[in-house]
C-alpha cells in the first residue's frame, strides 16, 4: 500500500533531476513506564524527470539523538586500585546515532562528502576543546564511540536499506530502551558515485510521557516537592507494611 502510494506521488510530482521523497512510520516516540524500545520505519521514493543517469545509486540514512557535551574518564592504576585519573570533555556527542546504508559506508560515500555532511560516527562527534595532544583526544573519542556502540547507542548497519528498482526504498531503525528524550534528526542522503546529490531531513520527537514525564519534570523543576513526595511515599509504605502485617498476625 505504502509503496503504491509513494509510486503515485513520485510519478505525479514534477521536480529536479533526482529528488528524495520520504516519510516515517511515526514522528513521535513516547517513553512510557513500560517503554522497551521502538522501531521506526523510514520509507520513500526517488523522484525523477528524466531516466536515471549513469553511476551507482546509493543511499545513507542517519538517525541522530540530541547532542550534548560528554565527559570521558580514563582509569589508571594507583596504590593498587584503578582510579579515574584523566578526563576529556567531548564538546558535543549525539546521545544516539544509527547509520543505515545500501553498502559499506565508504563504498557509497566519499571522504570529502563525509566531512561536509558529518555522516560517519567520528565526524558526527565534535571535539574541539580537547587538550593539544591530538592522539590523546582521539583515543577518548574512540573510547566514547566504543562505549556507546557497546550500549547499542551508536550503530552502523551496512546494506540495511532495501531499494527497489532504483526508486523505492525502505529501512527500519530500532530505537533502544535506554533513550534520552529530545529531538532526533533523521537525515536521508542520496548518493551517485559517492557524491551526495540530494538530502532530506526530518525530526522525530522523543518524549517521556505520563508518569515518567511528571516525575522527571518534578524532580528537576520542583526538587523540594519531589523529595518530600519521595519521603511521604516511603513513610506510607513503612507504616502501611507494619499495619498490614500486624493485622494479618492477629
Amino acid at each position: 500500500m505504502i509503496r503504491l502510494a509513494l509510486l503515485t506521488i513520485a510519478l505525479a510530482l514534477p521536480a529536479k533531476a533526482e529528488e528524495l521523497v520520504a516519510g516515517l512510520s511515526q514522528n513521535r516516540v513516547a517513553i512510557t513506564a513500560d517503554f522497551s524500545g521502538s522501531e521506526i520505519l523510514i520509507f520513500g521514493a526517488i523522484k525523477r524527470e528524466a531516466p536515471a543517469p549513469e553511476g551507482a545509486l546509493d543511499m545513507i540514512i542517519t538517525v541522530e539523538g540530541p547532542k550534548t557535551p560528554v565527559e570521558v574518564l580514563k582509569k589508571s592504576r594507583h596504590f593498587g586500585i584503578w582510579i579515574n585519573t584523566e578526563a576529556v570533555e567531548v564538546d558535543a556527542a549525539p546521545s544516539f546515532y544509527a547509520i543505515a546504508t545500501t553498502g559499506r559506508l565508504f563504498d557509497v560515500l566519499s571522504h570529502t562528502e563525509d566531512l561536509r555532511h558529518r555522516i560517519s560516527i567520528p565526524k558526527a562527534i565534535r571535539s574541539v576543546g580537547a587538550p593539544p595532544e591530538v592522539g590523546e583526544a582521539t583515543r577518548f573519542t574512540d573510547a566514547l564511540i566504543r562505549l556507546r556502540s557497546h550500549a547499542g547507542l551508536y550503530r552502523v548497519d551496512a546494506r540495511d536499506i532495501a531499494v527497489t528498482e532504483e526508486t523505492l526504498f525502505q529501512t527500519s531503525v530500532a530505537l533502544p530502551a535506554n533513550l534520552t528524550d529530545g529531538a532526533y534528526t533523521v537525515r536521508i542522503f542520496l548518493t551517485r558515485d559517492r557524491e551526495v546529490i540530494d538530502a532530506y531531513t526530518t525530526i522525530i520527537d522523543v518524549q517521556k510521557v505520563g508518569l515518567e514525564r511528571f516525575l522527571f519534570n518534578l524532580a528537576y523543576e520542583q526538587p523540594l516537592i519531589y523529595g518530600l513526595l519521595a519521603l511521604v511515599l516511603a513513610a506510607l509504605a513503612g507504616w502501611g507494611a507494619s499495619a498490614v502485617f500486624r493485622f494479618i498476625r492477629i
Binding site: 513506564a33 508518569l211 516525575l215 524532580a219 528537576y220 526538587p223 523540594l224 519531589y226 523529595g227 518530600l228 513526595l229 519521595a230 519521603l231 511515599l233 516511603a234 509504605a237 513503612g238 502501611g240 507494611a241 502485617f245
Partner: peptide
Amino acid sequence: TLMHAVTNYSVDILLAVILILGGVFGAQ
C-alpha cells in the same frame, strides 16, 4: 534523601517504590 533530591536530582521515586514494595514483604 531530601538533600540529594534538591542538590543532585538523583532520587528515583519509581525505583524506590519498587524496592520498598519488595522489601516490605521480604522483611516479614
